[in-house]
């Protein structure tokens, strides 16, 4: 899922400073799952904003709504009606939601309520870890399913650097060295030969270094 965390309240307050009526808009997708922008967090954010503004002597009216997704125009449709009632929208969705609202509704002032952090897995209660970087050219078939692009601080492709000790990364001792893990995984499977192959330099274009990425499926398009 896309993992996000609530922006510092002060930052949100600064963004909506000029307004009296603000819609706090949640998303029931990834951000709800990672407890950053679902119904509950919308309620909290709205309450915190109201409270802060009340303290500041400039009461704020908030609306609260949570859409099924903010990354699909059809789910964003109700915004068109709501827009008149509010001066600004604080989107609790990931950056995708904020962007799509900005794209579809140029007249709506939309501000982010969360910081979108990474693609991750929920590894323990209250804990998420980055597992993928969306580099667009998956090599997990070669690395025992463990990603050195997302999980190695140097994105190394030819094995662990000299900072790998006791299975730990030099960056932070609590971070496992993913190359150590790959080595052990492939050793156990008797597939160590794979690591002896020279891994050529990576094409970073699919990773986003070739500009914004898109995906088009002609067969699914309606407007021919």
């Amino acid at each position: 899922m896309i993992v996000a965390e609530r922006k510092p309240i002060r930052r949100v307050l600064e963004a909506i400073e000029p307004y009296q009526r603000v819609l706090v808009l949640g998303c029931r997708g990834c951000v709800a799952i990672c407890s950053a922008g679902g119904d509950r967090e919308v309620e909290t954010m709205a309450a915190a904003l109201r409270l802060a503004r009340k303290r500041a002597g400039r009461p704020l009216e908030t609306g609260e709504a949570t859409l099924i997704r903010q990354c699909d125009p059809e789910y964003l449709a109700p915004l068109r009606e709501w827009a008149d009632k509010y001066e600004a929208v604080v989107s609790m969705a990931c950056g995708v939601g904020v962007n799509l609202i900005a794209d579809l509704f140029p007249e709506i002032r939309v501000y982010p309520g969360v910081d979108t952090t990474f693609y991750g897995a929920n590894t323990a209660l209250g804990e998420w870890q980055e597992k993928c970087r969306g580099c667009g050219d998956c090599i997990l078939d070669l690395t025992g399913g463990l990603c050195p692009i997302a999980r190695c601080a140097k994105n190394l492709l030819n094995g662990p650097c000299g900072g790998s000790q006791g299975g730990r990364c030099e960056i932070r001792p609590e971070v496992p060295c993913v190359w150590h893990q790959i080595y052990e995984r492939l050793s156990a499977r008797g597939e160590l030969d794979r690591l002896m192959n020279f891994f050529p330099a990576k094409d970073w274009r699919p990773a986003g270094h070739g500009g914004p990425r898109d995906r088009i499926r002609e067969d699914l398009k309606m407007d021919k």
Partner: peptide, 16 residues
């Protein structure tokens, strides 16, 4: 680095 881990892989990496 002969002193980093995993030790057995260090020589292999040198070979690479």
């Amino acid at each position: 680095n002969p002193f980093a881990d995993p030790f057995e892989f260090r020589v292999k990496r040198l070979a690479k």
